[in-house]
Amino acid sequence: MRKLLLKLILAAIAVLPLFLVQVIGAALGILAYVGSKQYRSLFRPQYEAVVKSHHLPFQIWSAAAASGQLFSDSLWIWSNPLAALAKAEIQNWDVVEAAMAEGHGMILLCPHLGGFEIIPRILAEHFPATIMYRPSRQSWLNEIVEKGRAYPNMHFVPTNIHGVRHMTRALSKGEAIAILPDQVPSGGDGIWSNFFGRMAYTTTLPIRLSKRHSTPAVMFTAKRKSIGSGWVVNAKRLEPFSEDPNVAAQELNVAIENAVLTAPEQFIWAYNRYKHPSGAELPPSN
């Protein structure tokens, strides 16, 4: 009964105007920060360390509000894809066209920032896109996410060997794939590398796929504009990754850092980017 009620509430929120949805999301983000000690213990130290090290203003309440909007944006985009596309201001689209014109496909790298869920939909308006995702542990939430993410020309595959095979086939056909590069991979699928001054277990999948297929990697961001106004979507092509896997992992993390620093308050700071996944080797000391 509780899960059904939550589904109905989320469905009701999703049909509201973006302005109201983002206000609700901001309120929920602040409530989560105030009400959960565990949430704060992850959120504040990660956010605070980054803004202080880069001499940026410390805007904890804006960041807490934006953390709720990260989900509310996604919810609205899933339910209102055409309206969401109309609210996306796309910059540097020539970067995407040039990458796809090479005929080796494209690796879309998309951190959890702002309205990141709009990015694969923009791509799918022009090219087939295969997107790798990690299913939620809560079946009812996973059902909402999978239903919401369904969209023409977009194909979702799980983060396992079968998903990797689907992505490899997509690249061999010159199609685009999308990977969330700021997620912690499973043990054995990553390398420890510096991320904002701390060692983070970093995925090597985009690096390996880029090398295998001579595929360009493009970093995307979807920076949230003012309340209800939509997002600015930017694409930046990365230089080819180093042949040294450790250097390549650092190159990837620097690219993610640069993406995050375009709108640091809008990043998913409550996610434990520095956890030690089961099966991974111990991290080296900094």
Rank of each mutant, 00 (worst) to 15 (best):
I119M: 01
Y133H: 12
Y47H: 09
Q69R: 13
L282P: 01
P185D: 07
W93L: 03
A49N: 13
N272P: 08
Y39L: 05
L6K: 04
I268V: 15
S285I: 06
R44I: 12
H55T: 06
A14D: 01
A64C: 07
V95T: 15
I77C: 09
Q69C: 04
P185V: 12
I24Y: 10
V232K: 07
L282N: 07
S210A: 10
S74C: 08
I177E: 01
H162I: 15
A248M: 11
L261D: 12
I207M: 03
I119C: 00
A86G: 14
W76L: 02
F156Y: 15
V247Q: 15
L123W: 07
I107E: 05
I207H: 02
Y47C: 03
E257S: 14
I191P: 01
S229F: 15
L18P: 04
R2T: 13
V254S: 09
V233R: 04
F116V: 10
I9D: 00
N80V: 11
N246I: 09
L10Q: 06
G163F: 07
P17Q: 13
F220N: 00
N194T: 15
V23Q: 15
P240I: 14
P158V: 07
W231Q: 04
P45D: 00
S41L: 07
A83Y: 06
S172L: 09
P17R: 14
